[in-house]
């Protein structure tokens, strides 16, 4: 009969109305500033720079390669490369960003900077309360504000951070192994050269060994 559906619907909404008073479980909303829903692990909002260790200035993984700056669709990243170099996590000397700014008001949270970074240096944060009374300085975040520790990264994206760490550790191990192998090879070569030099057979040219490194 015509009108039956409306009656059913009104009974349903009445049930909601009464139920929302008697059963707080029904309320789907959260009283935001007081209560917050913990961020989901895959949540992402705004990038930050990861650093290892305790010192943000020294541990920064970023090497100022400027790939993210080039790839950023809305061009919200601004990087100035340093003049000098400092050792990275492997110990290899690398450049570091003298200036690294991201404009909050321009960033569109696309995560492309994260995808393209070969050094696992930039990651997405779950922090979303970015509003600021100062619309110039407050919205342009410099590298000191962007830098967050690897522990923080572990806290917000546990699985992903573990993968990244494993990968970095593997790379570091590989690099170390390679360095060790190099060193061994060098030592072997040196030993060989030494033995060769020790033999009565005259050495062709001792200088050829020395600069071989």
């Amino acid at each position: 009969m015509l009108g039956e559906g409306i009656i059913k619907g009104m009974v349903e909404t009445a049930r909601n109305f009464v139920g929302s008073y008697s059963d707080p479980e029904r309320l789907t909303t959260v009283e935001y500033p007081e209560d917050k829903i913990p961020a989901k692990e895959n949540a992402r909002n705004f990038p930050f720079l990861v650093y290892d260790g305790d010192d943000a200035a020294r541990g920064l993984r970023c090497v100022a390669c400027q790939i993210c700056e080039k790839e950023c669709p809305p061009k919200c990243i601004y990087i100035v490369k340093s003049k000098d170099k400092k050792p990275d996590y492997i110990g290899k000397p690398q450049f570091y960003p003298a200036v690294f700014d991201i404009d909050v008001s321009v960033c569109m949270s696309c995560q492309i900077c994260v995808e393209v970074c070969p050094f696992e240096a930039i990651k997405m944060d779950t922090e979303f309360e970015l509003s600021n009374p100062d619309r110039f300085g407050g919205l342009l975040q410099d590298k000191h504000r962007l830098a967050k520790s690897n522990e923080y990264y572990h806290k917000i994206h546990e699985t992903e951070a573990a993968e990244v760490d494993a990968r970095l550790a593997a790379e570091k191990a590989k690099a170390e192994a390679k360095a060790r192998a190099d060193a061994e090879a060098k030592a072997a070569a040196a030993a060989k050269a030494a033995t060769a030099a020790a033999t009565p057979k005259p050495a062709p040219n001792p200088t050829t060994v020395a600069p071989a490194k």
Partner: peptide, 10 residues
């Protein structure tokens, strides 16, 4: 308020 309660909001 009423619409909120009908939609299970506050």
């Amino acid at each position: 308020k009423g619409l909120g309660r009908i939609q299970n909001r506050l």
